[in-house]
Design a protein around this nucleic acid. Structure first.
Lengths: 214, 214, 214, 214
DNA sequence: GATGAATGAGTGTTCATTCAT
DNA sequence: AATGAATGAACACTCATTCAT
């Protein structure tokens, strides 16, 4: 097996199998939730034997990790800031629309399946330390780091007023996360207004609640 | 057993037992999580037999519901707004400090046990429909309703700028909820700054991010 | 408590309570079966506390025994042969109608509740030795003994052809019992023809199947 | 696994396992009864793990059904009437001995283990609807149907006197069933005379009880 | 690599029975 | 005698994981 061609082909096959299994797992988890889903369910959905799954994932939790990873990749491709000429050079006016676009993006990722996989992930992350740490290291922290850089520059250029950048970022992402959790809880107002929320949130964050009356 | 004195005593005893079991359940759930905890664990911790638990709660989930209820009661007593002469008459200056006090209160309830019971509750609420609905009906909706009334009045009196009150409320509570979830994920910045957050959040929400420079 | 009047009253009360509980047990057993019925079910139906039942019956099985006993008493009163001037003096013609009446009687006792309590009794008798022995001693054997006396006399008087009386009796009662069991199994033919069966059985037993053609 | 040879082997293995488990279940049920027997008991007796049983039977009741099925197969092989040149052509004399042989056969099947498995089956059939229906559909009704055909022919050929064939069949099978139940109850007379019963029963059914004296 | 039969630890829940009041 | 809260043993069934083929 020193043949580099064969090796490449092998990797392709392995990646394909992994993908096939993760697809199945995502569907079943979204439908039944994590604990109620059995490996048999996933194997049947993927059209493989139970044991085969263990050739690609060490255990049931690893499937969730795999799903998380894929979501992350997909997401990073989607939000590839480098498309923008220079994100750090946005003006005040552009900033508002950039902000809104970003918020809208985040609020719609999980909307696709009505937050069914989001529910499962959050639920398990709350309670499973390994998953939580992987999530933080691979997704949360890199995102935060990157955001800090931009916000720092914006603050220096007075696009934003001076403020604690790290807390600001955490507040904004927390706001989005919290709204998604509230949506999942079954809040009808959020359900009705989900489409208008990005604009609303952007205004709230940029302008605040305070009356500007004399 | 038609004796009203005896009946009252009975009720006391029953309430006491319930409390004793819920205390135990809270401790064990906080330590081990929901699923990993067995009824036997709780029974042992409460110093009763397994079966006794089922004389007071129909099943394991009902224990979580019971915990939720108690938190709610405790919380309602704590945030009894009626202490204030008239909450709807607060001036702009008072509003900021009122807001901050409220946010601080919310952010500290679950901090007491380092969010251990919060984790378990959120995790299970995400995934257990019955629990989710009870939570929404008994806690979320009443709170939202009450908040709407006040915010409406404040908006009318121009303490706040005109805005969609219902979305505003959901944004604020979502922000707090989201920050707690992020904290639970292990965010170190939030851990360090948790005490300063209420002030920060209040300013952010009232004043916004926008640079006020010309 | 040496007062004989009071004692008698006591006994009346006790008998009443027993009866009340047995009534309840019969109803519930007939509806849900033996094992699926809980003492709580019976207590509720009887309008007493769980513990009270144990003041009158040593355990759940004893309730079944009690039901059996009552059926027996009721039955013996009903089939009190002594009403007949002299059962052993019946002629051939009378014998056929007596036989038929007896068979009809046996086949209808349990029909009243569509064999629901019969099912439960037979099921448990098959499997519970104590119940089985009680049933044999208190019901089966006395009945067999009595029947033997009469059949012996009838055989001697040539109302019947000479035959092994004990086996004959067991065959006849077995036939009735077996038909009831088959009915319970859900045999539709038996269901439709149950009313005509006593006559049919009587003819079969008395005349046999053999063609009387030359 | 599309290899037909391997598939056949698989089926052999599966059938063998099923058999092994049913053997064990039969032994344990016969000894302890149905309810007192635990899956663990059966697993231990069969030399497999608890869970393995559930790879072959959906639940505990299915084991009883399996036992019933096997008895049925065994029985059908044993009573393969086709051995006889033509069962419907039997003469009057042959009929008596055929009848006796059949009755003897039926009365001895369950005698092998002293009716221990019979007890358990009857007890559970009385009380478990699914089992009862399966028993009726798979065993009772086919047997009855077949018997009706033959009895009809015999009646037409005057081997038997004209009579209601369906009731006759039910009476005969009821008689055998009833005697087995009485035996199980502990009747000593039946125990002593069990061997002579087939002849006795045959005579009773064919000739009746009636005195043939003038 | 793929299979899927075998494993057996693990647990929520029930309920007959007891007994202090 | 009546009560009904407390008990705790008992059990069917599930399912993640392993491993021989």
């Amino acid at each position: 097996m020193k043949d580099p061609l064969k090796e490449a082909l092998q990797e392709q096959l392995i990646a394909g199998r992994r993908s096939q299994i993760l697809d199945a797992a995502t569907r079943v988890f979204a439908t039944k939730g994590f604990h109620p889903t059995t490996i048999k369910d996933i194997a049947r959905e993927a059209g493989v034997a139970d044991g085969t799954i263990y050739n690609y994932f060490t255990n049931k939790t690893a499937l969730l990790l795999g799903i998380l990873d894929r979501l992350n990749e997909t997401d990073q491709r989607a939000t590839d800031f480098s498309q923008l000429t220079d994100i750090s050079q946005v003006s005040k006016g552009e900033f508002r629309s950039f902000m809104m676009a970003y918020i809208a993006h985040r609020m719609l990722i999980f909307k696709a399946d009505e937050f069914r996989i989001f529910k499962v992930l959050i639920s398990e992350i709350m309670v499973n330390q390994e998953l939580r740490e992987q999530y933080r290291q691979k997704i949360v922290e890199p995102t935060m780091k990157m955001a800090e850089v931009y916000f720092q520059q914006w603050a220096e250029k007075r696009v934003l007023r001076p403020t604690n950048v790290r807390l600001t970022i955490r507040a904004i992402s927390g706001l989005i996360l919290g709204l998604m959790v509230e949506y999942v809880m079954g809040d009808e107002t959020l359900e009705e207004e989900w489409e208008t929320l990005p604009a609303f949130i952007t205004d709230l964050i940029l302008d605040g609640l305070r009356s500007t009356q004399a």
